[in-house]
């Protein structure tokens, strides 16, 4: 039970490797721009982005809070709805056959076209953003949760029947816990698209947020500031993914497999 051994030498080595790779990429980018490979007005050098991150920090922070709120609420809404729908689809093959094609279709909706329509209807508030984020993150959560529900060993369901369990108790004791890792997997996949969704929604009409800031800076040819916003968005996605990984490990220790994780 040596779960507590957090900073084993192997982990430190992995962390150093990841950091080295990141520095290498940034270094290559810096050299590329400095040596005239790209116009700094199109691709700013990392050092100027770093400078913008510092000088514009309060501006970036304010807008980050707006986008972070949209993304977190959006993922929450998507997770709750997706879970409820997954359970419904799991219990009713008829509904599943009817609804699944619609779900797939929802993923084919081009967000840059849908977002302005939603803004037109619902205004500049948070609602159209939540809808866009939920729309883009919903699907992966439903698919992975349904897969987890369908993946429950039929022998286990049989066993529960020999114990005279009702359908509801079988769900409560076997299927529901088995579905939770699927829910987490779906949410982890959803994190990155949710951030992109938030940006698209802000581009279509808003007065704050990192997507909005990006657009403004872009129009004013303040490229380091625009890229600083992008850096923060990426870091946010990574942080969310890591947070979900940690939460999964704490909440579902039995499902934890030390592979393919960030944190």
């Amino acid at each position: 039970m040596s779960r507590r051994a957090r900073t084993s030498p192997a982990k430190v080595r992995v962390a150093i490797g990841a950091l080295a790779l990141l520095l290498l990429l940034i270094g290559a980018w810096e050299l590329y721009v400095d040596l005239g490979g790209a116009d700094p007005l199109i691709l700013p050098a990392p050092h100027s982005i770093a400078k913008a991150l510092y000088t514009d920090r309060s501006l970036l922070w304010r807008n980050f809070l707006v986008t972070a709120q949209e993304v977190l609420l959006g993922i929450l809404v998507a997770t709750v709805l997706a879970f409820a729908l997954s359970v419904l689809l799991h219990f009713s093959p008829v509904v599943r056959r009817a609804v699944y094609p619609l779900l797939v279709a929802s993923q084919a909706l081009p967000i840059p076209i849908v977002a302005p329509v939603l803004v037109l209807w619902l205004g500049f508030g948070i609602l159209p953003k939540l809808i866009v984020i939920a729309l883009v993150s919903f699907f992966s959560i439903v698919v992975t949760t349904l897969a987890a529900l369908a993946g429950v060993d039929p022998a286990l369901l049989k066993l529960m029947r020999t114990f005279d369990a009702t359908r509801l108790r079988i769900f409560r004791h076997v299927e529901l816990p088995a579905a939770l890792p699927g829910l987490f997997t779906g949410a982890k996949i959803a994190v990155a698209v949710a951030v992109i969704g938030a940006v698209f929604a802000e581009l279509s009409g808003s007065s704050s947020g990192l997507g909005y800031l990006f657009q403004q800076a872009n129009a004013q040819i303040l490229m380091p500031r625009a890229y600083a916003a992008v850096v923060i968005l990426s870091a946010f996605a990574i942080a969310l993914f890591a947070a979900l990984t940690v939460a999964e490990r704490l909440l579902l220790p039995w499902a934890y497999q030390p592979r393919g994780d960030l944190a």
């Binding site: 049989k158 529960m160 020999t162 114990f163 108790r169 079988i170 816990p177 499902a255």
Partner: peptide, 28 residues
């Protein structure tokens, strides 16, 4: 009759004691 399946089929999220008592939980 109660079955003890060929594979142990314990629920991975339940501790030994909760797995042992699963049939009772199944009855409420």
């Amino acid at each position: 009759a109660a079955l003890m399946p060929q594979r142990d089929l314990l629920l991975p999220w339940l501790s030994a004691i909760d797995n042992a008592g699963l049939a009772l939980r199944a009855r409420g």
